[in-house]
Write a protein that binds this DNA or RNA. Structure first.
Length: 432
RNA sequence: GGAGAGGUUCCCGAGUGGCCAAAGGGAGCAGACUGUAAAUCUGCCGGCUUGCGCCUUCGGAGGUUCGAAUCCUCCCCUCUCCA
């Protein structure tokens, strides 16, 4: 990963131009802070063992920081995860066990290692359980609690919406703990910038205040906008659930497809947010409309997939999609920095998710309905039948009309067969 | 601890003894149209079944009844007011 030369304002400007910045506590001061190599941090909740598309913005902001020579710190909330952040929630979070949290933290760390360089302390991965669990309740109240005004806490957006629903005391403490994290990092790691989602504003500001009071130093906060799609839904949510960054949870092909299916209105915005393609190049394609956006969508999908899964896997997904949806020439002048293959390649690569099936089973013929269920393309046999009745089921690109159809061996061309649910969801079945 | 209100299928939300697998909306899925877009239109949208139909569901457990999401009892949970 190449390093960028530049002053603090440059990172800030790049982040702003790319749409990463919602709010900053003190823009001028922050610019100054970032004018020399500095440290910044973001906390991630260990609520699952994988991050999803929604976490991409925070992750990539840290990557930008590292590229400009700053030191990102990732905090995994091993301690705060035991509490549960009420921000942006209308219901209390499910409390996780310690084991769950530890396992999730590990998964998250492995994923982040794909994005950030953790060598030689260029980025740090810390677990706040290390300093939160040893805290003594009485000491904490006296040292930290005395700096917080309940009146002001209640006035914050994050708590106000919860006051209608009910808020437990354990959750009410979350803000103090996160503020303490920031204070601790400022003290121990000279980290004076915290970033986070817009729902974190209250927690971040609390930390900034605490640092001022305890250390007499100036700290900064920055929040990212909540990224929604043009049609109004949250990023990374589909009927199947979240779009995950881990291959086990969301196949590379599906991941790629998620991005190709981006709404027209979002394409340029997403190129800025989710790829590292130079802004000058993106500016040049900003005015493309209609069908011309298709190459951009493919590039967007390719680039994001490459960031998350690597170029090889991205290429496979891209070529698999081309096989199904057709190849279009992507001009060399369109976003030239992208390494998407621009010529027709006839490599035999395949990123379509695969299910293996026992050979013996096929001999007596396997029911088409069962196969759709087994591959996960349908949730139940009823759903599979419905799909067929509605004409959305395909075997090797032939529409299935009969619910009772049994698939025989001869349909397995070269030992494999292609199932489609609708026009976009594809699955391969191989004999073993 | 006391008083009241409430917990319905993915979400919101109707339903107060049979016509309820449960209105309506949203989300989602499929089809048509397209550009793997959006919008629109049509259909679907608990499970099993070719189908007649059968099974499971209305916070939980019991009960009344030929029959319960609807009535009764106990329990759990949430909210509001009071302490």
């Amino acid at each position: 990963m190449e390093l960028k030369e530049g002053k603090g304002l440059d990172v800030l400007n790049e982040l702003k131009e790319r749409g990463f910045v919602e709010q900053v506590t003190d823009e001028e001061g922050l610019g100054e802070y970032l004018s020399s190599p500095s440290t910044c941090y973001i906390g991630f909740d260990p609520t699952a063992d994988s991050l999803h598309v929604g976490s991409l913005v925070p992750i990539l902001s840290l990557v930008h920081m590292q590229r400009y020579g700053h030191r990102p710190i990732v905090i995994v909330g091993g301690g705060t995860g035991l509490i549960g952040d009420p921000s942006g929630r209308t219901e209390m979070r499910k409390l996780l066990s310690r084991d769950d949290i530890d396992r999730n933290a590990l998964g998250i760390k492995n994923q982040l290692a794909r994005f950030l360089n953790f060598d030689d302390g260029k980025a740090l991965f810390l677990n706040n359980a290390d300093w939160l669990t040893p805290l003594n309740y009485i000491d904490f109240l006296r040292d930290i609690g005395c700096h917080f005004s309940v009146n002001r806490m209640l006035a914050t957006e994050s708590y106000r919406m919860r006051l209608e629903q009910g808020l437990t005391f354990i959750e009410f403490n979350y803000m103090l703990l996160q503020a303490y994290d920031f204070y601790y990092l400022a003290k121990e790691y000279s980290c004076f910038l915290q970033m986070g989602g817009s729902d974190q504003w209250g927690n971040i500001v609390a930390g900034v205040d605490l640092i001022r009071r305890k250390l007499g130093k100036r700290a900064y906060g920055m929040t990212f906008p909540l990224i929604t799609t043009a049609s109004g839904s949250k990023m990374g949510k589909t009927a199947q659930g979240a779009v995950w960054l881990s291959e086990e949870k969301t196949s590379v092909f599906d991941f790629y497809q998620y991005w190709v299916n981006t709404d027209d209105r979002d394409v340029v915005r997403f190129l800025k947010l989710f790829t590292f393609l130079p802004l000058e190049e993106i500016h040049k394609v900003e005015n493309l409309t209609g069908e011309q956006l298709n190459p951009l969508k493919r590039i967007l999908a390719y680039e994001v997939t490459a960031l998350v899964h690597g170029h090889e896997r991205a290429k496979e997904a891209y070529l698999s999609a081309c096989k199904t949806f057709g190849f279009i020439e992507i001009g060399a002048d369109i976003l030239p920095s992208s390494s998407i293959p621009r010529a027709i390649l006839d490599e035999v690569s395949d990123a379509i998710p695969v299910t293996m099936i026992n050979k013996e089973k096929i001999d007596e013929g396997v029911s088409i309905v069962d196969l759709f269920v087994e591959t996960g393309l349908c949730n139940s046999r009823s759903a599979a039948k419905r799909l067929i009745e509605q004409g959305g089921a395909y075997v090797n690109d032939r529409r299935v009309v009969d619910i009772h159809e049994k698939l025989k061996k001869d349909l397995f061309v070269g030992g494999s067969l292609l199932l489609k649910a609708g026009k976009k969801r594809i699955h391969r079945v191989r004999l073993e």
